[in-house]
Design a binder for these strands. Structure first.
Length: 553
RNA sequence: GGUGCCGUCGCCAAGUUGGUAAGGCAUAGGUUUGCAAAACCUACAUUCACCGGUUCGAAUCCGGUCGGCACCUCCA
């Protein structure tokens, strides 16, 4: 088994064989930095972050993601605010990097900006013109699509299709309506740079070709981006790069992630659509039979169409960033995702629960020290399968004994990741492992194994599972926080949202503890009711201590 | 008009180079608990929008129908 990647160019999964053995060069189109990044950006870069992380385990990876920081939209946004385009663009670029960090995305190896590569871009255009694939009109330079016999191969359109569907205003100066600008002559008041064709700025598309060539060479391994970029952006990049380099391919594998769709104007719980023009208010319940979901303030904000500019940071301020990430990873990267509050809350609950289990495991494993961990690490090793590595047999689902659970899960997770980065499958596997771990932690494993496990076997099993989860988490970019810290932080956030001090809650819990010791259950229940009314959920443990968590306000 | 994608349990969602339907949420029983909560166990799609075809065998391949979405203009 090797890593397999769905290639948009061939419309099928292919074995991943990098051009240079052991090395991967990937380019993913970054953002045009003129506004806060939205959840669609978040989805895309989380998807490629997993690609990055997974390939890094077995290859030396160079991941390049650009910032387009000169462009019509930036110029317009800056003009609207009376701000300098360059400073506006760099402000949003910095903000984007912050957002990505909060989402747990590793920074790419290179994050080039267009304005810092004008020289390379001009040289690139010169090469295209020299090869006869570009032409100059009044200080503009256009790419001559007719010179590319393969044009349309990526998006599956013929040249006729493109012309027939062209809604662009026809520019008589262009030889063909499908020709696109490589270089745009400067207009008054716009940022511009000198060039052989006069002052101007790069057209869209060319920056990616030029910067990819600089950092990755004329032909590299993976080129990625959102599905919307297939046409015209990537189609044009492919055409112009091949023209400039005299090659017939740019990237061996073209990867495109699916879109995020905003929740429809309807019930987030049952999905019942609202009628045209019908509105709901917070507190109103869903009219669908058997639903009765009560709309919250948030639902309305979320479901209200705010176009695509639904900023990630707003979502992350309101919900756990890691939960947003988990929500994305629960769906395969090529599938569309419906964004809704209900789904996000579901992810948040799952994440909280997983961290609680992780915290429980760490509690058991901590006293054992590093030796147990090292032993588990030696048993478990999660890495991508290199095409040049010896083939491993796909593991068949079986009824594994405690010694095999970790290793077999690891095998299935590896297969899932190798199979076009199937994170949804990985999430399912980790859910199983979490269940086994909980089983052992609550000492209810008898039903599963037919016997109570002796403590050394329990510890070994927990260590194995912990190790698989740690490694899977490393690839998914999940569970990177210390479980104990996470649980504490979540509790604090929710407590604050409800306006309670940890100390006053602890005091109530302690009072109840004393009442229980005195077998004054009436008083204990009374205190619990008080706590429950404040959204505090108590979990009495076997050792007499009480764990607690706070429900969402 | 052109191009492409999708339609799997009440909801979310894997599985699509054919071999007999992962996982999560919800729900119903149960174990556990002073009572709870949490956790765990069990149950929950003979069926994959519909119709027809190929095949020993199809959710997976082919044809058609219906439904949804995206792109063709800036977009992750």
């Amino acid at each position: 088994m090797a890593v397999r990647v769905y290639n948009t160019l061939s419309r099928q999964k292919e074995d991943f064989v990098p051009t240079v053995p052991g090395e991967v060069r990937m380019y993913v189109c970054g953002i045009t930095s003129y506004a806060p990044s939205h959840i669609g950006h978040a989805r895309a870069y989380v998807a490629f972050d997993v690609v990055h992380r997974w390939l890094k385990r077995s290859f030396r990876v160079t991941y390049v993601r650009n910032f387009t920081d000169v462009d019509d939209k930036i110029i317009k946004a800056a003009a609207d605010r009376g701000e300098d385009p360059k400073s506006l663009a760099s402000r949003y670029a910095a903000q984007f990097q912050e957002d990505m960090a909060r989402l747990g995305c590793l920074p790419p190896e290179v994050e080039p900006k267009v304005t810092e590569h004008i020289g390379e871009i001009v040289a690139f255009i010169e090469r295209i013109v020299a090869r006869g694939a570009g032409y100059v009109v009044d200080g503009d330079v256009y790419f001559d699509v007719a010179k590319d016999p393969h044009y349309g191969r990526l998006s599956g359109r013929t040249i006729e299709d493109v012309e027939a569907g062209a809604r662009v205003e026809i520019d008589a100066r262009k030889r063909s309506p499908r020709d696109f600008a490589l270089w745009k002559a400067a207009k008054p008041g716009e940022p511009s740079w000198p060039s052989p064709w006069g002052a101007g700025r790069p057209g869209w598309h060319i920056e990616c070709s030029a910067m990819a060539a600089k950092y990755l060479g004329p032909v590299f391994d993976i080129h990625g981006g959102g599905k919307d970029l297939v046409f015209p952006h990537h189609e044009n990049e492919l055409a112009q790069s091949c023209a400039a380099h005299g090659t017939d391919q740019l990237a061996r594998y073209w990867m495109h992630n699916g879109f995020i769709n905003l929740a429809p104007e309807g019930c987030p719980a049952c999905g019942a659509m609202l009628d045209e023009g019908q509105t709901v208010e917070a507190g109103q319940s869903c009219g669908a039979p058997d639903c009765g979901y009560v709309y919250t303030e948030d639902d309305l904000k979320m479901s209200k169409s705010r176009g695509n500019f639904f900023p990630v940071r707003d979502v992350m301020d309101r919900y756990e960033p890691e939960a947003l990430r988990m929500f994305f990873l629960n769906t395969h990267y090529r599938k569309p995702i419906q964004f809704s509050v209900a789904h996000l809350q579901d992810a948040e609950r799952r994440l909280d629960k997983s961290y609680e289990t992780l915290a429980g495991m760490d509690e058991v494993l901590a006293p054992l020290g590093d030796e147990a961990k090292r032993a588990a690490t030696a048993r478990i090793e999660l890495r991508g399968t290199r095409s040049d590595a010896s083939a491993s047999k796909p593991s068949k689902p079986s009824k594994p004994g405690t010694a095999e659970i970790g290793a077999e899960a690891r095998g299935r997770i590896q297969e899932a990741l190798d199979d076009d980065f199937n994170t949804a499958k990985v999430m399912a596997e980790t859910a199983e492992l979490l269940r086994v771990a909980n089983d052992v932690l609550t000492e209810t494993e008898k039903a599963r194994f037919g016997r109570r496990l002796p403590s050394d076997e329990r510890e070994r099993l927990l260590a194995d599972i912990r190790e698989v989860l740690r490694e899977a988490g490393e690839v998914l970019g999940l569970w990177q926080a210390t479980p104990e810290a996470y649980v504490l932080r979540r509790r604090t956030i929710r407590l604050r949202a409800r306006g309670y001090e940890p100390a006053e809650i602890e005091a109530l819990i302690d009072a109840r503890r004393r009442a229980r010791i005195e077998k004054d259950f009436g008083r204990a229940d009374e205190l619990r009711d008080t706590l429950v009314s404040r959204g505090i959920v108590l979990k009495d443990r076997k050792d007499g201590t009480t764990a607690w968590s706070v429900e969402e306000a």
